[in-house]
Design a protein around this nucleic acid. Structure first.
Lengths: 167, 167
DNA sequence: TTAAACTTTCAAAATTTTTTGAAAGTTTAA
DNA sequence: TTAAACTTTCAAAAAATTTTGAAAGTTTAA
């Protein structure tokens, strides 16, 4: 496998994987491309490399910036905007964990809390609803605590967390 | 909020959340419905409750069974098939973690390994591709080890893992 | 100012995913 | 056997998501 084959394989795998996680292909591929690019890339560069339209590129870059994993960069003396991604994969994971907690875990915990707090009425279906949503609430909450522990940790956390879990 | 409001809120939230994770709405909602149902439900019950077609119900039940989180049950003296979900949420999480590792993490690790093993050629772009895919490989691998630790653990693991991480 | 060089927006088109429902398949009881 | 009671399959329809590209918007240099 030479450089170009490897690059294409990585970008397309990352795209497919994104799809599996509810992230669209273009967004995941732009991220993959920036991640392995030693230099910042312009919108033209990205469009050209991935064969996607200007609008698509613009919108997905914006989303990646909202996620806090891609940044604008300006080269001095140039009007054009360039983009880089977060290069430290631990920091990348931390940022993604943080955003997913904020966007998904926290709203879920809220709903589970509301639902599990309904008035017990003695029927088995109400009992079961309360029991199960309470259990899910507790689990989601513990997960969120774990995620936050990990977010607030210095670099190399994944290795450290692993060690703690193993022993 | 009464029982029906709570039930509907839970089912529709679970559906929306599934969508965010690449699981279709019907599948997530069938799962939610079974999770809070004290009794096993038939296909008719599910179709009726969620207002979805027979084909849709059949296909999604099959997927949930492939995931190992929904089971067929036969009531004696009845030909109809009934379905229940895994009720223990820790076991549920364990099963989901196991399947996601098998379906997503392991293939990803394989590709990252292949891509990061290309021949170094002294160019900065090759160096960066190797460096970044190696870092991702290491991270994916550590995650997989963590997941497997956790899968192989007895019930209540999430609380235990949490305690270990906190101290 | 103006206009060139860029980026963003958004309605429409393309694509992908999900859902439907009827036909085909299966199982069981008689 | 047959037929009733079910479930599964799958092509077509519907729905949801993604992508396009041109027009509108913005910024900078002169």
């Amino acid at each position: 496998m030479n450089y170009n084959e490897a690059k294409n394989k990585f970008i397309s795998t990352w795209g497919a994987l994104g799809t599996l996680w509810g992230i669209n292909k273009a967004m995941a591929q732009i991220h993959a491309l920036l991640l392995i690019s030693p230099e910042p890339l312009s919108m033209e560069d990205i469009m050209e490399e991935l064969q996607i339209s200007r609008g698509n590129t613009s919108m997905n870059l914006r989303q990646l910036m909202d996620w806090g994993i891609v940044f604008k960069e300006n080269k001095m003396g140039e009007r054009k905007e360039y983009f880089t991604s977060e290069k430290d994969v631990q920091e990348l994971a931390r940022q993604i964990a943080k955003e997913r907690s904020r966007r998904e875990l926290q709203p879920t915990i809220k709903v589970l809390n509301d639902v599990s707090s309904i008035q017990e009425d003695g029927t088995s279906k109400t009992k079961e609803l309360i029991r199960q949503t309470k259990a899910l609430h507790e689990m989601a909450n513990n997960l969120d605590i774990m995620v936050n522990k990990v977010i607030g940790q210095e670099s190399n956390w994944i290795t450290k967390a692993l060690l703690k879990l193993i022993k």
